[in-house]
Design a protein around this nucleic acid. Structure first.
Lengths: 170, 170
DNA sequence: CGACTGAGTTCGGAATTGAAACTCAGTCCG
DNA sequence: CGGACTGAGTTTCAATTCCGAACTCAGTCG
């Protein structure tokens, strides 16, 4: 096309985020994971709690199971009944969920937040940061570099200002 | 169960995550934000880079602007041309993006990762954590408590194991 | 035996996509 | 001057996907 000589990363190989979103990037999957974190496990409960249509729920649960995010196991034998619970991979999505909640708390439309995330041992509102094992410091998104081509907070990721970024830790 | 004495958080009032997902919870919005972080700003570039259909792109960009996640400004006057760039609120979504990338790196299907996130100053792979300003420590998702009803990693959020959680940070 | 549970399925109809072609203003080239 | 080109969108129409409600099926309870 045009004179462009640059080759953007096109669809051939999905990037990390694309792959993640393929798994949980639809309107419901993340909500299902969240429900799972809240302890919901049974079909009808997911259905009632989220207001998701049954056929869609069936499909999503199956996909999450296939992707190893949830597990379907019988919780009683009499009439065999199955429940869905998060696997380790599913639980590992919680940082992402928390990040989304935090965002909504800060920038969400309306501004009113019905829930605040706090550090359970002291009740202080938490901040999110990255942790470098080697340097033993926390730092913000602007010090993250993508090696390869998933995310490189390149050209314009500099406007930040409210991230802990090295709160103390050094 | 039948009588349902428990009041799950139903659809009446959207929870924090629900509100966030309403903004960026569709198949494309997050990808658009990511593209924005990578420096893409122009309509056709978003289109080519993501392979998104034009009508959908139009719609999503408009929504992101309406939600204050992106800004539409002219970048030349001759023939007026507009570009879309992330606002502060948009940039603030990066922790969530990073969390998603991290997840894919660790649990993503296939296992092959085309990008690893590292601490830019030392090249070490980063870990994600939460930071408590008061306690001056980092901690993992299991020590997060939701006050209100957004997320409370309640009943089963205990299986974790690979989060720094207080690595040292002091 | 009849009502009830829990986990799905099977319908239509409604809303969203997606690909490709078309519009429009203005600029560049010969 | 006129045709080709850009960039940012529309329009059109077929193909998906989604929702809501009703239905199935196995097994249990009273």
């Amino acid at each position: 096309m045009g004179g462009s000589s640059e080759q953007k990363s096109n669809q051939r190989e999905a990037t990390a985020i694309e792959r993640t979103l393929e798994a949980v990037g639809d309107r419901w999957s993340i909500l299902l994971v969240r429900a799972g974190l809240r302890g919901i496990r049974r079909f009808d409960d997911f259905c009632a709690d989220l207001g998701i249509a049954r056929p869609v729920l069936t499909d999503r649960l199956r996909r999450l199971v296939r992707l190893g995010i949830m597990e379907r196991t019988p919780y009683q034998e009499k009439p065999v009944r199955y429940e869905y619970r998060l696997t380790e991979a599913g639980l590992a999505l919680s940082p992402a969920l928390v990040a989304l909640v935090r965002w909504s708390e800060e920038y969400g439309a309306g501004g009113i937040s019905d829930s605040r995330l706090v550090h359970s041992t002291c009740g202080t509102e938490l901040e999110q940061a990255f942790w470098c094992r080697r340097c033993q410091t926390t730092f913000g998104p602007q010090a993250v570099k993508g090696v390869g081509r998933g995310v490189d907070a390149g050209p314009q990721a500099d406007v930040h200002k409210d991230v802990p970024a090295g709160g103390s830790a050094k």
